[in-house]
Design a binder for these strands. Structure first.
Length: 502
RNA sequence: CGGGACGUGGCUCAGCCUGGUAGAGCACUGCGUUCGGGACGCAGGGGUCGCAGGUUCAAAUCCUGUCGUCCCGACCA
């Protein structure tokens, strides 16, 4: 039986609720709340109507449905390749971690203990030692690393794992913050401090590349402040993105762990000189939260908008007809085009007879398919097809002969335009702020603010209390610019990025 | 965990105040007509009213508890 750290009920009550709240397929019909009406409702509508996820019977948990899981699989395959190309290998560590492991690193236990779920019973008996459901795997991994690492020849050790983790969150939101979520966590061990630091930044850069080139989502890479860093890290780096409501979202993190875990778990190696030393470490992760980021970055009031590089289905072909013989001719042509395009793209022909074309247009727009090809009797006659891009309400008529080239060109353009538009939006909503009072007023409209900050925790705390904004990061590309802290007026060497966040 | 709103066919909701045979629209199934931006007709199927107690001859309706979702605050990827 499983109890959580604030034990209120057993799993038994949850399982009876399962049958009662479980509901089969919900079909889309209702209109989506617009972003201007209510941004939160809009987000929930997109996730549920596009059938990306549904609420699970357990509080804070979600079911990732095929439409959503498909996106995660795409993300995984791209990232996994990037990890392997940088020398990492995958492994799997267990879900259950002895409670005592968490205690070994002081900051780590303080940070994670409150949000841990704990298993107290197994096989009908109380356990000798409680087991935690991993909130992150540093402890179990470093326990194992201490057995595996003995020589400098064992280093660097570069391991990644794809898994689920559990954090008992107070307020949850589909994809953005759920009790259980899927992620990847890389854990590396190095002989030299510089190697671990380099690794930390290298992986941060992998995330930035992924966000910008695949998700078409511009991000700011930077260093987290002391109060925002990962419990147990020396430094935490982040990529921060701006959502369409002008709030910040932390999309990925990379930590330089110093020797904190190596010391806590006694991970040492002999160097070339035969001397025993502690290893240096990094860890880094991105989660299914990226799906939430993707939605909030690009989607509109019609539904999901997917960048071509992450769309499981990139092109949908809608045949249009009157009468049965016309139908068979048009559908045949649609499949021919599909075959031609399938060499390079993933293509779907929607030849369902029970829906009219207009209905299908709306449905596929809801699902975010980047490009739609419409083909009807008029096109058969003229030898053309109509291409309609999802990101803009633009249709073009192109000769059937060049459909493959045009598709390639358009998908590439869509990918680029999505990024460009997101970047323009971010730039248009990023401001310099030098006066605290003005900042406090302006922040009501969200946005990013580049402010001077002296580096003191108490000034950071005041910003948080008076504006509800946080210092998102100290951008890596921040230019040297001497100024005065927006709160206390003390000297500041460069501007930091602040804003309200998810 | 505090404040607010809400749980009734798959979806959106009415019915509840004043207890007495569970409803509508959409969706779904069958047949026919339709088909270039969310078609129409006819005929069907489907709900122990979130859950558990209680009051009552009788509870979707009244009472108590509980679970869940959304919004607003304190914690976080």
């Amino acid at each position: 039986m499983i109890f959580f750290s604030n034990p209120r009920r057993s799993v038994l009550s949850a399982s009876s609720a399962f049958y009662l709240s479980f509901k089969p397929e919900a079909l889309m019909s209702k209109k989506i709340t617009t972003r201007s009406e209510n941004y939160s409702d809009w987000y929930i509508d997109i996730v549920t109507r596009a059938q990306l996820a549904d609420y699970a019977p357990v509080k804070g948990c979600m079911v990732i449905r095929p439409n959503g899981y498909e996106i995660w699989e795409k993300m995984q395959s791209v990232l996994d390749k990037m990890f392997k190309d940088t020398g990492h290998r995958n492994a799997y560590f267990p879900l259950l971690i002895p409670e005592s492991f968490l205690q070994k690193e002081a900051e780590h236990v303080e940070g994670f203990a409150p949000e841990c779920a704990v298993v107290t019973h197994g096989g009908g008996k109380k356990l000798a030692e409680n087991l935690m459901l991993r909130p992150t795997s540093e402890t179990i991994i470093w326990h194992m690393y201490s057995k595996w690492i003995t020589s400098y020849r064992d280093l660097p050790l570069l391991i990644n794992q794809w898994c689920n983790v559990l954090r008992w969150e107070m307020r949850t939101r589909l994809f953005l913050r759920t009790t259980e979520f899927l992620w990847q966590e890389g854990h590396t061990a190095h002989a030299a401090k510089e190697d671990a630091e380099e690794e930390t930044l290298k992986m941060l850069n992998v995330y930035k590349t992924f966000a910008e080139e695949y998700m078409a989502m511009p991000v700011t890479a930077g260093l987290k402040t002391e109060s925002e860093k990962f419990p147990g890290a020396v430094n935490t780096y982040t990529i921060e993105a701006m959502m369409q409501d002008k709030k910040a979202l932390q999309a990925g993190t990379s930590h330089f762990l110093g020797q904190n875990f190596a010391k806590a778990f006694d991970v040492t190696f002999q160097d070339e000189a035969g001397e025993r030393r502690h290893v240096w470490a990094s860890s880094w992760g991105v989660s299914t939260r990226l799906i939430g980021a993707l939605i909030m970055c690009h989607s509109d009031d019609q539904g999901l908008v997917l960048p071509p590089k992450l769309a499981a289905r990139q092109v949908v072909i809608i045949p249009i007809w009157k009468g049965d013989d016309e139908a068979s001719r048009v559908i045949e042509c649609a499949h021919k085009i599909k075959e031609e395009l399938s060499v390079k793209f993933s293509v779907h022909v929607d030849d369902r007879r029970q829906y009219k074309p207009g209905w299908k247009f709306n449905e596929w727009e809801l699902l975010g398919i980047p490009l739609r090809i419409e083909i009807g009797p008029r096109d058969l006659e003229s030898g053309n097809v109509v291409l309609s891009r999802r990101d803009k309400k633009e249709k073009s008529t192109v000769p059937m002969k060049s459909v493959s080239d045009e598709t390639a060109r358009l998908l590439e353009t869509i990918q680029k335009d999505l990024f460009q538009r997101a970047r323009d939006f971010r730039e248009a909503n990023t401001f310099l702020a030098d006066d605290f009072q003005g900042f406090k007023e302006r922040i009501e409209e969200n946005g990013f603010y580049r402010i001077h900050w002296c580096g003191q925790g108490k000034c950071e705390e005041r910003i948080k209390e008076e504006t509800k904004a946080t210092i998102r990061c100290i951008p890596l590309d921040a230019v040297e610019e001497s100024g005065k802290c927006i709160v206390c007026g003390a000297a500041s060497p460069r501007r930091v990025l602040a804003g309200r966040a998810y």
